[in-house]
Design a protein around this nucleic acid. Sequence first.
DNA 1: AGAATTTTTTAGATTTACCTAAAAAATTTA
DNA 2: TAAATTTTTTAGGTAAATCTAAAAAATTCT
Lengths: 217, 217
Amino acid sequence: MQSFTEENYLKAIYHLTEQPDQYVQTNAIAERLQTKAASVTDMMKKLADKGLIDYVRYTGAKLTETGYQTAVGIVRKHRLWEVFLVETLNFKWDEVHDVAEELEHINSVLLIERLDEFLGFPRTDPHGDPIPDKHGKFEKRSFIKLSKLTAGSSGTVTGVSEHSTPFLKHLEKLGLTLGARIEVSEVSEFDGSVELVLNNKNINISRDVAKHILINT
Amino acid sequence: MQSFTEENYLKAIYHLTEQPDQYVQTNAIAERLQTKAASVTDMMKKLADKGLIDYVRYTGAKLTETGYQTAVGIVRKHRLWEVFLVETLNFKWDEVHDVAEELEHINSVLLIERLDEFLGFPRTDPHGDPIPDKHGKFEKRSFIKLSKLTAGSSGTVTGVSEHSTPFLKHLEKLGLTLGARIEVSEVSEFDGSVELVLNNKNINISRDVAKHILINT
DNA sequence: AGAATTTTTTAGATTTACCTAAAAAATTTA
DNA sequence: TAAATTTTTTAGGTAAATCTAAAAAATTCT
């Protein structure tokens, strides 16, 4: 059993891992957790001692199999709670993140299995992220960032890579919610902003917004 | 905003308070929280500084209005979560306590209001305890401990004052669940054990068990 | 390759919530 | 009421998670 803090570090490493054998850097973890590099170093030693990460000085940290399973377990809990909040308690998709950050640390296997069952074993959360099953298994979605699409290409919004309230409220206002069909009409050479067609209307979004919208083509 | 630990101290004082103006003793708090008196003294100073309790050295602690509201808020959350676990996720009444102890510290007004609404504004939890409304108001139930009943008196089981799994499983096995009609046939002069009639059957329970069963006559 | 920069670690403090042991106050007993 | 007992507090210390400042290693630049 780990403390909330340890769990948050494991989750941070999990989310920062982009390649299978990558060592995540101390600074990257520090930035994600809004803490200082020195604090991260301390925790890396602790997690390494517990066998949850491989840690190499001046290189970074990588989850061990145990650490990975722990991290995925937390992600599973987070996403199931998000589904619960939206589906059962009528939260909006921009209201769930902070509460789920707390709920994900509740420790009860029975609770999560029953919740999963109650929700009908959902495969994705309100932001389109896949939910690991009880064995930690789940398929990676295939998607492309909207910012990578070129003029003329089209697709469906299947996810977002930023879960903050302001960002999601912005998308909501534009009508860019999960399942929306879009077609890119133009990408600005100047600032990378994207013009697209949604429900027969033209809308314009900044590159920063486009980067966090995940598209299924 | 308080830490989990501070919240647990406030809740302990709340539960240990039997009379309106009573100062709860340091040792009593220590025993309830499975900690040492010295640790309690430290925390009493801290809570007093925060204006959550009145603390008098060598006398004890009493919740201030703010402290009381905080404590009742936690009790409300605890009991609503217990209802959720039993009603929605099909937990048994002996399985909910520990999980609810964790869930009660989740901080979200919206969450609790929506949960309350989803559950249909329940008035009591699975152990018969009343659930405070969002303003912290609730009626005290009137009940008498089964151990205080005399031979010949009868009533209905309306609550329990002990929430541990072994105790509740024991009651379950005997059929002494909420709503059960009982009649006391004999109280032992020797050890205070109670013989009673439940569903036309005679059962015998120890005084220790009887003390934790709450009866409505 | 050597200098400059960035990243990371170490050293030493701080805060929170604990602890033990001893002292002090309150209560009970004789 | 004085002695014995119980309760509570104080003093001093520990572990977890954090911090700042300075040192060390790695990387980038010229």
